[in-house]
Each structure stands twice: as C-alpha cells, then as structure tokens.
Write a protein that binds this DNA or RNA. Structure first.
Length: 430
RNA sequence: UGGGGAGUGGCCAAGCGGUAAGGCUCCCGGCUGUUAACCGGGUAAGCGCAGGUUCAAGUCCUGCCUCCCCAGCCA
C-alpha cells in the first residue's frame, strides 16, 4: 500500500510503500541507511543484506542526494530513527538518479541560496516556513469565514489608482493606455463593503519601491478587510482579534515547524489581548523624551519603531497620525483636522509595521478636496467618489502584510524567506 | 540614492609581496545500527573584471562590475 510518511502511525507493523527523495544516506558495510523525504516527513529505511532484495542493495549504491526513489517494507516505531519511524526495506527502486546536488549539508550564502530557491524550498527550514505560511493563510480565511465576511477579489491590473503614483509597476493595456499592477485592493474592497457589509480581499500586491531592507518585497501578499459602519476603534478591535486568532492557530498547529525553526514559543504565547494603544502625539512625546530626534509630523524611522517597542512584548497600536503623512482616503478627525483616524500596528522584536488601517473619509466633498490637493487624476476616482454619493456610511479597514506576519511568527531575519519565490529589486530569477 | 562590508574549485573557507591550506560535495576502498557517522585514498580553482607598480601580486595602487548589511519608502 502506498502511504505518506505523515500517515505511518496508522500502519505500524504493516508493509507499505513510500515514494520520495533521498535526504541522506549512510552505510556501514553490510547495513545501510537511506533517509527518504516525501514532503510530509522523513523515514529512515534500513537496508540489510539478507533482508532486502539484491536489487535494492544495488539501487541503494546508485542513490545520490535528492535522487527520487521508492522503498517498500514493514514499518515500526523506532526512537533511533529520524522521524520516529523506521522501515526494514525489502524493495528499493530508483526513479531517477539526481545529478550533483548544489545545496550541501554545510552553510551557504544568501545569494547562492536565492539563486537556488527552487531547490532550497526542499530544505527542512524552508519547508517549515512554508508550512507556517500555509497555516497562517488558513487561519486568516477561517477567521473571516466564521465572521460572515465575504471574499471580494480585487483586480490586479488597474488604471491609475492607488496611493501614490511613483511606486507602480506599469504595462501597456491594449488601446487603453497604461495599466498598473495593483498596490492595494482597498478602494475596490470599499465598494464591496457597500454591497456586502463585511468583506476582505487577499492577494498579491505590487510596489515598485527601490527598498532593500529585510522588511520589503516588491511583490507581497496583503490581506485587506473592509467593514461598513465600523469606526477606527472597532477597526483596531478587529485587528487585535485577528492577530490573536492567528497566534492561537499557529501555536496549536505548527509546534513541529516552530521547533524546527528554533522559535522561542514564549515570545508568541505572550501575544495576548488587549494590545496597548497610544496616540501618535504620545508616541512622539515618548520618543523625544528617550532622546530621539523625531519631530511631530514625521513618519517613524526604523530606529524610532525599535525604541518605541523596547518595553512591549505584544504588538502596539499607534493611532491618529498627522494628516500630512498619510493617504488621501483616510478620514480626518472632526475635532482635530491635523490628524486622521488611523492606526499602525507595530510588531514586537523589531518586526515593524504589521498592519496599517484607517477609518475612511466618507464625506464626498472632503474626499474630493483631498484628491485635488494631492493632484491625483480626478477622472480615475469618479467611481470611488460615487461610493460617497449613494448611501455613504462610516467604514474602516486595514491592510496586513502576510510576509511580515510570517516572518514574525517564524522569527526570521528577512522576509525573502517567507514567500516561495521572492521578488526584490535585483531578483526576478528563479 | 547614501553609509558599511564582501567577491579565492560546484559549495564554504584560509592565505595579507615569494609561486594557492582545510572542510563539504563528488569518485574509489573499509566497517551489520548509522544519526550533518567514521577511517583510508583520489579528482577539481590561479584567486570578480580591466589596467598599473614590482625580479615576483589573491596579496600593493587605479577604475569598473556584482552581491550582502544598514538607512529612506512602506505592509
């Protein structure tokens, strides 16, 4: 019977067939060990003269690292074996003998590993990260499904629309002129919220920023929920609920992966509601008191974020930022037009901005004023302004960067490892 | 774009003016319980590119290229 290694506990004592790739082999004369990797786990096969077919012994000799093969025989639990199970191999058949495999059991540099990303994905650490990413995506979808949110897929090809025009990837779109790869689905999801109440989009996002930091990708996955009748406070509550839900999910489902990544679980267990909330004004006051040179009206630099997070082990909300440093669609605080009703959620351990959210400007004339003030192409936003003409309501939403969350959960140095094939400036291969 | 660092066999890495260590991979041999096994033997680079100094240059000088890290921008 063909089985996956993850299913072996149901087949102890039985003879089974597993197929996969050679992770490692060792030989000690008449007894040989082949560790097979099938994507669900590792299984050590023991090939002994007398037990195994002669052809199996011959095929074992031909195996090189990452060669594909099948082995058959009775399996049993064995504490000595990596993976906990061991097979007494009767048959072993090579499917393909792999050529000299570039990635060895020793250390490699990041450039080399990224050039071989298609192979690097097989290594245990990268395997664990992708499993965690998968679970985080599942947690997010489940969270919104349970709360009756509707998935609204937003276009990836758009006209000139978004936040700032300088960071868009462009392409020619038939006879209609330039098209741009979406840098946010938010404006569209606002339309969805007016149709369904509670919606979200979750897809790839493109930013042509020439940033070269451990937190940036030029193509990344962003989750953007949008809720009609939510204000900024309810928005922050939703963010907090979501992050706690993800953390709880990961701690239940990814123990093996987090252990493989050497992640300090206590750091993740410390992420519990409520998250502290401070205003931008207060954040500036604290930073200045701590000796930082930042002044009111400026965005935080990485050192500012780190300084601010020093005393926190859970994420921190910083709300109501200066109008001048935030996007045109954010709603101005009616009592203080110099700030907008928005929030950034900063992650602990230096992981930076995990979420950016805001209540949206729902007044047609104020929104139009902002579009004009920022010299955005008014025609392109006609449909967006329509949302404020036909039953405008208060509403709010946010954007969560999947890769930053994965990097945080896994405790990684760089987001390029959180996505199967990272797109960064200077990297389009593989 | 600015600041810092690095480019030596397939991978990792020593050498810092005198004629290219070592490890991993790979190949051959040994071992009936190995755990990134071990033991013995073997193949493989002229040192990012282009000039220059010198009797002699990975090693010094000049210019260029590439990569990495930090910053800006943001999720």
């Amino acid at each position: 019977m063909k089985v996956h290694i993850s299913e072996l506990q149901d087949h102890a004592g039985q003879s089974v067939t597993v197929s996969g790739w050679l992770y490692q082999k060792r030989s000690s004369g008449k007894i040989k060990f082949a560790v097979l990797r099938d994507g669900t786990g590792y299984l050590q096969g023991v090939i002994a003269k007398g037990e195994a077919a002669d052809s199996a012994l011959d095929d074992f000799e031909r195996l090189t690292q990452e060669s594909s093969f099948t082995m058959t025989g009775p399996v049993r639990e064995d504490k000595r074996a990596p993976g906990g199970f061991e097979m007494t191999v009767k048959e072993l058949t090579v499917i393909q003998v792999a050529g000299e495999y570039p990635i060895g059991p020793k250390e490699h540099g990041p450039g080399f590993l990224m050039d071989n990303r298609h192979l690097w994905l097989r290594s245990s650490r990268q395997h664990a990260i992708m499993r965690v990413r998968n679970e985080i995506v599942m947690a997010i979808r489940q969270f919104f499904y349970e709360r009756d949110f509707v998935l609204i897929d937003t276009p990836i090809l758009t006209g000139a629309i978004g936040e700032t025009a300088s960071t868009l990837f462009e392409t020619q779109y038939f006879d209609l002129g330039k098209a741009y790869l979406a840098q946010t689905g938010q404006l569209y999801v606002e339309a969805g919220a007016m149709a369904h109440g509670r919606v979200y989009c979750f897809g790839p996002t493109f930013r042509a920023e020439k940033s070269k930091t451990r937190k940036h990708l030029n193509e990344f996955w962003m989750l953007e929920p949008e809720v009609a009748f939510n204000d900024s406070n309810a928005n922050m509550q939703l963010q907090e609920d979501l992050v706690c839900y993800i953390m709880d999910w990961v701690l239940r489902k990814c123990r093996t992966e987090l252990a493989a990544l050497n992640r300090d679980i206590s750091k993740l267990e410390a992420v519990k509601a409520p998250f502290p909330r401070i205003s931008y004004d207060e954040a500036i006051a604290r930073l200045q008191k701590a000796g930082m040179t930042i002044t009111w009206g400026n965005d935080f630099g990485a050192p500012d974020e780190e300084k601010l997070m020093e005393e926190y082990e859970r994420p921190l909300f910083v709300y109501n930022w200066p109008t001048e440093c935030k996007a045109f669609y954010m709603k101005r605080n009616p009592e203080r037009p110099d700030v907008v009703l928005c929030d950034d959620l900063l992650g602990p351990e230096g992981y930076g901005e995990l979420i950016g959210g805001s209540q949206r400007e729902d007044d047609h004339d104020l929104l139009l004023e902002r579009i004009r003030a920022q010299k955005l192409p008014e025609e392109s936003y006609a449909w967006y302004l329509d949302l404020r003409k036909y039953g405008s309501v208060p509403h709010a939403g946010f954007g969560l960067g999947l890769e930053r969350v994965v990097g945080w959960v896994c405790g990684l140095e760089h987001v390029r490892e959180t996505i199967p094939f990272a797109r960064t400036i200077g990297r389009l291969y593989p």
